[in-house]
């Protein structure tokens, strides 16, 4: 029986390699082969998560390697779910985004540690995957907007109605709202406050307000044409919330 660390590393390497293959196949328009590759990627990721959960004796969302991998998996799942409603190149770009997210973990030194006492609560594993699912929905909306940018510059009037972007935003908003509810309850029980002036919390509030505000665009005809750049800007806000506050601030949520 190989050591758990070996299983984890092998599963991780295999998952990233399969995702890279999936990206190539998606850009080549080989749909069925892409699906098979992505299914194998998900299987490999499951082995990765289960082994880590077994070692840590807890849900595997507590360090940066697990966080990046979770986000990559959720981007793949969401992209696959919306595949019939987005262009082939958009789908391939989303897989590329997932690949970059997953491959980032090789930059870090992977030290598997037991979670700290504050993390050992059910609210934490409820809060994290839902936040990342929201990021995934919003990232798909952002990529969708990015691919519409050229048409937007040409003032294509059909771009004013973007039901898919609104739907993606609504799903993301729902996930993020529930994630914030769970996170708020956790914060109240662990630190006595559902909100603190911490960069991660402030930027999470920013994201929630921003995407909540964007949900109103459909009802504001004079502003509706700004939906494309605003959804693209949303991607930047997600990056700041996830990576910026996680690595470059003094947040207590820092990785």
């Amino acid at each position: 029986m190989p050591a758990p660390e070996t299983i984890i590393f092998t599963a991780l390497l295999l998952a990233v390699a399969l995702l890279a293959l999936g990206v190539v196949l998606a850009f080549a328009g080989r749909h069925r082969a892409t699906d098979v590759t992505l299914a194998l990627f998900l299987l490999s990721s499951t082995v990765f998560f289960l082994t880590r959960a077994w070692i840590k004796d807890f849900f595997p969302f507590t360090d940066k390697v697990e966080s990046f991998m979770t986000l990559a998996v959720l981007i793949v799942l969401c992209a696959r779910y919306y595949r019939s409603r987005i262009a082939g190149r958009e789908f391939a770009t989303l897989l590329l985004l997932a690949l970059v997210t997953a491959a980032t973990i090789f930059v870090f030194q992977d030290r598997i540690r037991y979670p700290t006492a504050y993390l050992l609560t059910l609210w934490y594993p409820l809060h994290i995957p839902l936040s990342f699912a929201a990021y995934a929905f919003w990232l798909i909306a952002g990529v969708n907007a990015l691919f519409s940018l050229r048409a937007w510059r040409g003032r294509d009037p059909s771009l004013q109605e973007r039901p898919l972007m609104t739907e993606l935003n609504r799903n993301g908003f729902l996930c993020f709202t529930v994630a914030m509810l769970f996170g708020g309850i956790w914060g109240y029980l662990a630190w006595g406050a559902y909100f603190m002036w911490d960069p991660k919390l402030v930027w999470s509030a920013i994201l929630w307000l921003y995407y909540g505000n964007l949900l109103h665009l459909d009802g504001l005809p004079a502003l509706r044409r700004w939906n494309i750049p605003l959804y693209i800007l949303g991607v930047l806000l997600i990056l700041i919330t996830f990576i910026g506050t996680g690595f470059f601030t003094r947040s207590i949520h820092k990785f």
């Binding site: 002036w197 307000l209 505000n213 009802g219 504001l220 502003l223 601030t249």
Partner: peptide
Amino acid sequence: RYAGFVLGMAVILNLAIGSLVMD
């Protein structure tokens, strides 16, 4: 509604600036 949208964005901008100042 338009005022609400603009005020919402102003709040977001303020929070973003606040986060940078606090850091």
